[in-house]
Design a protein around this nucleic acid. Sequence first.
RNA 1: GGCCCCGUAGCGCAGCGGUAGCGCAGGUGCCUUUUAAGCACUUGGUCGCAGGUUCGAAUCCUGCCGGGGUCACCA
Length: 521
Amino acid sequence: MWQPNRLEQERLDKLNQIEARGVDAYPARVHRTHSAQDAIAAYEAAEQAANGGEPAPVAVIVAGRIRRFNVKGKVSFMHIEDQSGRIQLFLRINDMDEAVYSLVQEHLIDNDDFVQATGTMMRTKAGEISVRVNDLTLLAKSLSPLPVVKQQKLEDGTVREFGEFSNVETRYRQRYADLAVNADVRDTFVQRAQIIRAVREVMDNEGMLEVETPILQSVYGGAAARPFTTHHNQLKQDLYLRVSFELYLKRLLVGGYRGVYEIGRDFRNEGVSFKHNPEFTMLEFYKAYIDYSGVMEITERMLEAVATAIHGKPEAPFRDHLINYAAPWPRITMREAILKETGIDYMQYPDAPSLEARIREFGGRVAPGQPWGKLVEHLLGEYVEKKLIQPTFIIDYPRDISPFAKKVTYDDLHVERFEFYIAGMEMGNAFTELNDPRDQEARFLEMARTFRPEDDDAAPIDEDYLQAMRYGMPPNGGFGMGIDRLVMLITDQHTIRDVLLYPHLRSTKDNEEEASPVDEI
RNA sequence: GGCCCCGUAGCGCAGCGGUAGCGCAGGUGCCUUUUAAGCACUUGGUCGCAGGUUCGAAUCCUGCCGGGGUCACCA
């Protein structure tokens, strides 16, 4: 139940006064002719055409939210904001119906209200292109004031801000207010959409088909991750929210598509951090007749295209770095990378006990009894990952932690798998996909054998997937990448929460109290 | 989950054992070209919640709730 605070009560009182004057505070129809940006551009064009003389009148109707409000007696100024930007309104009692102006002068109209202004373009004495208003219509009364952020335009063109809306919890819980107040936050999500569009365009140009596969799955798999569980009441069936798309997508290659991709949500029941959210957006693709080298080339093309789409060139700043996405990126084997940073050649310790001992000797802290591949991965994560600032492929991963990748030709311990790293973050994972159903079954069984009950991220065996593979799966290369992390990189945001409109937060007591009566109905 | 930090007016913050303050926003008044408009006056707080210590707690202690960081876990 809403308990209006004092400021809200004042606005409610104003709303009553407005309606008492016969003004509709929430009209249905708007008659906008120009965005803020278009109105300014139109006037600039008229000035150019006038060549120093009096420009031809430019009539406009603009609409937006009031972001600055300066009543100066019988003349007032306000800035309204729409998606294109801000524009100043110049209101003078002589130019308009006094009853309308009185709404402004008596401050019945507030910051944050949506208004429509009819008028002609002009320049104020201070030189700002503005609308000389002869009619002002309230479009929507705002009852809860937004945080006030004042802006000062400096001579060098930059904007200084006074006051801010920065409490991260409130910003995430009330993202609408965050977006309404912070234009840079709005921009980030515009860029996010552009990035996803660029990714999709690259995929389409590679000749791949965009598909959708089940989110609710009775058998989950394709990644080492704990799932969320749910239940279908009528079917009396427990279901999992997918942790990857992999197994469903590769079935489609059996079906005859040369390449498929999906951009969608994955759900992993794990920790939350600056780069982990329980639900996140993933891109996966599988393309027939290419191996992981081919996938690396597509990866380079894709990231180049995305960076260029946003920044106009294949580079983008992230933290203190300028990341250069231009191909080709270095390809370093896992063995070389770890050797370089730690001096440990893990091939001299080809079994888990000896490698574990070597890591301990080196000063590393590892849980006892881990598989060999996990230990190798630990070395990479602990000593190499943070140093991989510029885009880098780490290739040839341990076989025992890669159940869907084909073996390399040179030994039995490695598979044709790569992960790529940028700005010290793991960005994606790819392999030459295993397509021998006997080998795949053996890998599943091997994973099941090393399964420990406390390790509930071990996936169950997907018999239907094996059946699909027995019909014949073309050789193919596959790829997965976290879109959210990509957006972080390209937009220089340092936490995943700032590239998700609604990042996961704990529910508050208030939410629970409000939600419960609905369930009881 | 461990450890550390934070939660004070709508927003941003100060106060850190003597009973709550600043800026912006808000209200009233003046102002017909302002732009962080200005001037004068002014309203506004269960100091996250619950206990405890104390003559006295926003301030110290404990627990809980929420957030952030970090480690663990995890791609």
